[in-house]
Design a protein around this nucleic acid. Sequence first.
DNA 1: CTTTTGACGCGTA
DNA 2: CTACGCGCCAAAA
Length: 129
Amino acid sequence: MTGHSPDDKPEPTALHLRIHDAVRRVPAGRVATYGQIAKLVGGCGPRQVGTALARLRAGTDVPWQRIVNAQGRIAARGDGGSGTSQRSRLQAEGVVFDRRERIDLSRFGIEAEELVWLDPGSVFLGDED
DNA sequence: CTTTTGACGCGTA
DNA sequence: CTACGCGCCAAAA
């Protein structure tokens, strides 16, 4: 082996790892926008968040499903296959979609300040009031 | 090295 | 409400 790896699945960059960590902070039943994650990570734009999630592989521990666009809608992938799986997973977590497949960010969205206080892996297991 | 693409955001018409 | 364009930043070709 030459040492170089023509792997079809190259490892994510440090920036991507940082984005993944930020996404892990989003608790179940809640959603965050690409811009929020980008701002939380800092030094990158919303596009980088999408790219980082796109490079994720199946079985990842990153709750990528909780990341939606600023419109509260599931971002369309270039693959053409809309986030069908994403929508299903979000509903399973209690996230409700309106008739236009839109999520009320006022209700399920999370504030950037909230993410700062939350720790990665801290899942809301019935913290409801 | 340059150019194009991309799971976006936001202002404006 | 929809449609269009520009900006943003990085990874991939």
